[in-house]
Design a protein around this nucleic acid. Structure first.
Lengths: 170, 170
DNA sequence: GTGACTGCAAAGTCTTTGCACGCGG
DNA sequence: CCGCGTGCAAAGACTTTGCAGTCAC
């Protein structure tokens, strides 16, 4: 996927953990071992995830009492607040994605496989700006979801998932 | 609001209730008094609402045992399925809007007053189509939320609501 | 040291489900 | 009259909170 809408590569001066540490310091909060572990797991690979998926990845640490479910939720909220993660409601739960050193983008959402495909388009931001101007509206951000079926699922003849547990409604 | 992005007026041949009746018939379902009451309330005015707000409007009928909470949820799901309502997750709950005899549109979402302002733009659909083509993606629908502050709230100097109970996170 | 942070358990919020009775077609 | 639909109560999924002990600074 290298077309007009592909995302440019990431470049960051400071690691997510360092940036989070700075955020915490600025608020008189502490960089605890739990927060460190969670940030490391969250930024170990670029992917969309929800709290439950993250908890699964952390299950060993949870079993060893290194970190707990409420702390994961609490830390995710802080990472969102700090601008390191972006939280978005999808299918009745919150899904998170990296928002640090990562370009603004929007999503194609495949109803069959639940995959989120990221794409970038300057034109969308321009368009939002024009509409906002018309309504004298001050933009903070925008979010565009294009729902449908990805190429792979169409080739396999998969229909939009009818199993509700498989489906993340947009 | 009569600019380029205003929505054109509504025109429908069949009333929402009639259309719902047809939907039910086609599925071997029944048009019960409860379903009738709910459809009448839902389409009595054009507005966004969530289940809790609808339940409030129906509180008298609920008190009189004419309709119950589970039935409201069940019927909202059917109205969504029937294409009469559109369901969208907003701030941890589902918000519904009319989707029958109502033109495709997108939303400006004011973080201060939680209002949803509808607007229409052909350009957005065209843009989605172009991106989808690039990714060989079959579009079912799209949803664009522009989050920020509306003119009125800005004039009043209101900041984005810090009261979490007031805030519907997008 | 001291106060922010944690794990635990419990509660909250929104939504769904099992079941026996009731009513629409 | 058949069986879908209902109300009730209870459970479910996800997330948040109160509290007493613990640890970062």
């Amino acid at each position: 996927m290298v077309g007009r809408y592909a995302l440019r590569s990431v470049r960051v001066a400071v690691s997510p953990l360092e940036r989070f540490a700075e955020f915490l310091r600025s608020r008189g909060k502490r960089l605890t071992s739990q927060r460190r572990l969670i940030v490391e797991q969250v930024f170990s690979h670029h992917d969309h995830f929800d709290a439950e998926e993250l908890l699964e990845h952390l299950q060993e640490l949870i079993a060893r009492r290194r970190v707990s479910r409420p702390t994961v939720y609490r830390t995710l909220a802080e990472l969102d607040e700090a601008g390191l993660l972006k939280k978005m409601p999808l299918g009745g739960r919150n899904v998170y994605e990296h928002d640090y050193g990562y370009p603004q983008h929007d999503h194609l959402y495949c109803q069959s496989c639940n995959r989120l495909i990221e794409f970038h388009s300057e034109a969308i931001a321009r368009l939002c700006a024009r509409v906002a101007q018309e309504y004298d509206f001050e933009i903070v951000s925008h979010r565009l979801f294009v729902t449908g079926r990805c190429a792979e699922c169409r080739r396999q003849g998969l229909l939009p998932s009818s199993d509700p547990s498989e489906q993340r409604r947009c």
